[in-house]
């Protein structure tokens, strides 16, 4: 199976959470390159290639936190789905919010999954492992 390694964008403002993800990736042997943005605005700029022009393959998968400064996750999703070039990106929401409203809003904006950040590390690692298996199976368009 000719594995294609897709880039992943993590939009997260909490440093510990970023570390958490990186640690979970390492534990699960997830080798996909991971880019990090600290809020929605930064992420949009990054996806438009304004932040790091050297990157050729823009990420096809986004891990998105909801509560962030400047531009929150839901707002970011709205902007993303409006943008012709970005609207087909797969977005997984990873958040602490257990609010129905957030879940409904997120699924209305076509997210691929909504994952609650558990308190303990182990369960999070399990969740990331499941994600890895999932997106390894998925096919993405080339461009």
């Amino acid at each position: 199976m000719g594995e294609k390694i897709v880039n992943i964008l993590l939009v997260e403002d909490d440093e510990v959470d970023v570390m958490n993800i990186k640690r979970a990736f390492k534990k699960n042997n997830v080798t996909n390159p991971l880019f990090v943005c600290n809020n929605g605005l930064e992420a949009l700029d990054f996806l438009h290639g304004k932040r790091d022009p050297s990157i050729v393959d823009l990420p096809k998968i986004i891990l998105l936190d909801l509560n962030m400064p400047k531009m929150g996750g839901i707002e970011f999703l709205r902007e993303l789905r409006k943008d012709e070039s970005l609207k087909n990106l797969s977005v997984f929401v990873m958040t602490t919010s257990n609010e129905d409203k957030d879940k409904v809003d997120a699924y209305n904006l076509n997210v691929a999954g909504y994952i609650l950040k558990p308190l303990s590390m182990e369960r999070f690692i399990e969740a990331v492992s499941a994600l890895n298996n999932y997106w390894k199976l998925c096919e993405f368009p080339d461009k």
């Binding site: 510990v16 640690r23 602490t96 590390m121």
Partner: peptide
């Protein structure tokens, strides 16, 4: 309540994670 559920919980998770690490 919203703030409580998110903003108070995420540092907690941080503490939890860090101790585990």
């Amino acid at each position: 309540a919203y703030i409580t559920s998110h903003d108070l919980k995420s540092p907690l998770r941080g503490i939890n994670n860090l101790t585990e690490w």
